[in-house]
Amino acid sequence: MKSGSKKERIAQRIARELRDGFYVNLGIGIPTMVADYIPDGMDITLHSENGMLGIGPYPTEGAMNPDLINAGKETISETPGSSYFGSDLSFAMVRGGHIDLSILGGMQVSETGDLANWMVPGAVVKGMGGAMDLVAGSRRVVVAMMHTSKDGSPKILPECTLPLTGVGVVTMIVTDLAVIEVTKAGLLLTEVAPDTTVDEVREKTGASLRIGDVREMRFAS
């Protein structure tokens, strides 16, 4: 399976975590793709940290408006019931626990739910943007990432080796291979992808996994 379709699958699985009425923040990359799989009829309001609730689909070419962008600096559209506000109020929503779910990319996640996703020592530092606020304040934080790095090394580790974005902030990890919940007793494997096994997931995970009632991963369509 190509990595593009693996990423689609991660987004499709995460879409199943959405609940009616949720206010949701989607990060850049795989998380943005979750918007394509919101179940029909479900009331989901997307938050953009640059100051908007109610992100709609990309506009048609003629309707692109430089005054209306998302946090990835892409032109977007509004939906009925959208609202606009300043960055200070936007992050009050985030830190104040008013965002039900944040979905972010990850470089590493530890077995206690620490997340590293903003900085690689030696590489040019681009900045954390809003990621540290989103993980510190959102009610649930789901990390969307490939299970291992391109060289096959594990990204789920006993402890992160990269600089942290937040400590003990992740509630769930969804990868191309598995769904793992972060619990007080450690990482709990709850689902594996159709084309893999519990053993393969264990082998490719650097941290110890408790094996729950493991089901096959299912996807929103």
Partner: peptide, 15 residues
């Protein structure tokens, strides 16, 4: 020189 600040902290420090 570049000082990087988390975005919500940046907004609130200004506020």
């Amino acid at each position: 020189e570049v000082d990087l600040v988390p975005q919500g902290t940046f907004a609130e420090r200004i506020r």
